[in-house]
Design a protein around this nucleic acid. Structure first.
Lengths: 205, 205
DNA sequence: CCTACCGATCGGTAGG
DNA sequence: CCTACCGATCGGTAGG
């Protein structure tokens, strides 16, 4: 009946992780010190180690939490009966919502992953490569089905991921333009852009 | 005695800067140690300080070299008699060429600038904000002249800068697609979404 | 959760 | 351009 799990500490650990994500984003993983993190949390530095194993572990948790969210969302989307365009729209909207809603974590996973230690570094990169390959496959299928025009799938994936990542810089202008409008604009713009690519390539070839 | 002009050391200083750009890109500014840099250069760490003032100075040199290149290119473009579309094309091509040709320096200026010390940090951010404002102004003029669609200029600038920055990830696929094709595709793709002329010209022809 | 403290490593200096 | 070395700071541990 009694719960053996350290439920009581889980909450504090989550606070530490959240503060770490924020600190790592602002100062970078290496420049962020455990003493600074402790101050943000409200304890002395050694007390952190009652909840976490190491500084490295914090980075691992953040990076893989993000990676797993994207992976499982992609799996979910692939199992729907949507058209390719519909799938891409779901994926793009998910990226945008993550970028706007869990900014710290996404930023850290995007910029600080290189400080992961092995074997986590390799695992993370594999998961990422796999994610991109799945996106490419979805677009390839759209091309095959004549749902998308004859675009280069890699270029399309690059364009989508880059545009969404560009929202990092959007934070500054956040107040000027509603995120709802931004989301709709970006979705239509990205999907529309892919249909425009055909004409470009046709003229060249 | 009279001050010896350090012309002889200039070359060595440039080697150090080049190696520093590469090291800062790979490991990040904080994780890169001066001992490691010294090893790359082929001397002991203290010997570096015969050529440079500090680690911070290296970051400053790299970041402002990049910033000044973009600023002066933009000034040059603004003084030409090109159409707005022509100006944007020149700017985009310059970004792409810089990204492909001076990858280390661009990457460091894009990712490690936050470790600049004041007042350099503020100067750098001001220069960058100014650059973006100039881009916005160019696009606003294009809209006013009916050369571009009635797009949100900030969104357009964000899209352009994000797409070009996305070329960082392109490095991996570098061998698969010719950079010339990539450059042309990206230019037309970015401009096509914005221009009015394409549609009207199509009807004329 | 704290105080006390450690070994490692850092950027940088002194002096030749 | 080197050897020798310094103060500061780091992540993390011991012990209560």
């Amino acid at each position: 009946m009694a719960k053996i799990k350290p439920e009581k500490n889980t909450s504090k650990k989550e606070v530490i992780i959240k503060k770490a994500a924020s600190l790592f984003r602002i100062k970078g993983f290496n420049a962020a010190s455990m003493r600074e993190l402790a101050e943000d949390v409200g304890v002395e530095a050694p007390s952190l180690y009652n909840h976490i194993g190491s500084k490295s572990e914090l980075l691992q948790i953040i990076c893989f939490k993000v990676a797993n969210q994207f992976t499982s969302q992609l799996n979910h989307v692939e199992n729907t009966n949507n058209t390719v365009t519909g799938k891409l729209e779901l994926i793009i909207r998910f990226h945008i919502n993550m970028m706007l809603g869990e900014f710290d974590e996404i930023f850290v996973a995007n910029h600080e992953w290189k400080y992961l230690q092995e074997p986590f570094l390799s695992n993370f990169l594999n998961q990422r490569r796999n994610y991109e390959k799945h996106l490419v496959a979805i677009i390839e299928e759209g091309v095959k089905r004549k749902e998308l025009k004859n675009i280069n799938p890699y270029v399309a994936v690059l364009t989508i991921l880059s545009a969404v990542r560009g929202l990092e810089f959007w934070q500054r202008h956040k107040k000027n333009i509603s995120t709802k409008v931004l989301e709709d604009d970006m979705v239509t713009h990205l999907l529309k852009g892919m249909t425009l690519l055909l004409q470009t390539q046709k003229h060249k070839k």
